[in-house]
Design a protein around this nucleic acid. Structure first.
Length: 406
DNA sequence: CATCCACTGGAACCTATGGGTG
DNA sequence: CACCCATAGGTTCCAGTGGATG
């Protein structure tokens, strides 16, 4: 067992690492300069600059596919705005929230309150992490803004997930609040960032028109742009000569194949670098990028499966064991599995729901088939190799899986 | 060409958890 | 104390649905 361990440690300790700034390869990293996004940044800055004249900037929506730089541009501009406002001694309160990371609508409100410092100051008017109604929580926040006459810029990243989960009530209240506060000195500017271009359709017309007073669409990067982005990022992240041009080009090409997702490209670069370091290579090459791509493809379903709740796992096993793969058949198989492991089975309704969740995760694929007189159903297939399933589930359901393969 | 199967998928409702206000 | 709140993860109920079959 001890064959290689010393040499692994030695390699790591010898300081011959390829990466000089690992931070630059993470998703959270916001670079100083954002190539190919000057126009968008300029628009955003122009809109927000109104605040320095003491007036309310327009609300703004930023659209674009994942990895097109929306969040980075917003963070970048907003950071500078804050710095400038400190310099000029003009009060601007900026809060940046990721609705998806926050989890639920209420938690978004809670985070806003937390960041504003309401909970430290306002005795009896705090926004606790549970217990209040949404309306009450919103009111308290708005009242605070009004009382303090705050010039408040609220950036909501992944705003679509907020609306999906709990409708546009919160947005409605925030946009409407401006009309009430107008004369009294405080105001709220909302900046929404959305991945989905159809996001606006889900909004109430009143919210829609006031939320998208201005709009900016982020187009995907071209492969060539991705290449340049990766090149600049590599200069920050890697030591001189620690990555080949070919590797960068390949990264760009792979990520650009679907739509120019810079995040994916940078992820891939990072994974490739890790693999290269691990094998003690002196620089990152094409083969590491390929291996990285490979690993990312394999890892995602493995992790998803391993962390899935018990019944999701059982459903997966049922899918692999089921003969015909129709919903009814899978459900029957699932029922017997439940009996074997002494789990209380869920209803069929819930199981079909789980199946569609698994489909979203890409673990399973479904086709609707019509057997006329014999009804209409889904044909469900696993889309990942059996070995992955076995590997991921062996701890929980070793016995079921061995019988599944026989 | 109407029928009718075996589901699909929307919607309301339920329960537990972890709280709140007056 | 009585009664209210949000959320996750379920259940119950039920109106569709597409096309092979009689």
């Amino acid at each position: 067992m001890s064959f290689d361990i010393d040499s692994i440690f030695d390699k790591a300790a010898s300081g011959k690492s390829l990466v000089k700034n690992r931070q630059a390869l993470t998703i959270d990293y916001v670079p100083e300069k954002l190539p190919f996004r000057d126009e968008e940044a300029k628009t955003l800055a122009q809109v927000l600059s109104t605040v320095f004249k003491g007036a309310r900037p327009s609300n703004l929506l930023l659209f674009g596919k994942p990895g097109t730089g929306k969040t980075a541009v917003a963070k970048n501009v907003v950071d500078r705005l804050q710095k400038k406002s400190n310099e000029l001694k003009i009060d601007v309160t900026v809060i940046f929230i990721n609705a998806k990371a926050a989890g639920s609508a209420y938690k978004v409100l809670f985070e806003i309150a937390e960041d504003l410092g309401i909970n430290k100051e306002e005795q009896g008017k705090q926004v606790h992490f549970t217990g209040l109604s949404m309306g009450e929580a919103t009111d308290r926040i708005l009242q605070y803004i009004q009382k303090k006459k705050l010039h408040f810029i609220l950036v909501i990243d992944e705003i679509d997930s907020l609306v999906d989960k709990s409708g546009d009530d919160i947005l409605y209240n925030f946009t409407r609040a401006n009309q009430r506060m107008m004369s009294k000195g405080g105001f709220v500017t909302l900046i929404g960032i959305s991945n989905s271009l159809t996001f606006k359709d889900k909004l109430d017309p009143r919210v829609r028109s006031s939320l998208s007073e201005e709009e900016t669409v982020f187009n995907p990067y071209t492969v060539d742009q991705l290449r340049q982005i990766l090149q600049e990022r590599s200069k920050l992240a890697f030591n001189e000569g620690a990555i080949s041009d070919a590797a960068i080009n390949l990264c760009a090409a792979m990520a650009g194949r679907e739509h120019g997702d810079a995040r994916k490209a940078i992820d891939l670069l990072r994974v490739a670098a890790e693999l290269a370091e691990r094998e003690g290579a002196t620089r990152v090459d094409e083969k590491h990028v390929r291996a990285g791509q490979d690993r990312m493809e394999k890892d995602a379903p493995f992790v998803a499966l391993k962390n899935a709740p018990v019944h999701h796992k059982l459903v997966i096993i049922a899918v692999t064991k089921s003969k015909s793969g129709t919903t009814g058949d899978v459900y029957d198989t699932y029922l017997t599995l439940c009996k074997q492991v002494e789990q209380k089975p869920l209803t069929q309704r819930r199981v079909t729901q789980i199946i569609s969740e698994l489909e979203l995760l890409g673990l399973v694929s479904t086709d609707i088939v019509n057997q006329g007189r014999y009804g209409r159903s889904q044909k469900i297939k696993i889309t990942i190799p059996m070995t992955t399933v076995k590997e991921a589930l062996k701890e929980d359901f070793a016995s079921l899986i061995t019988t599944a393969t026989n």
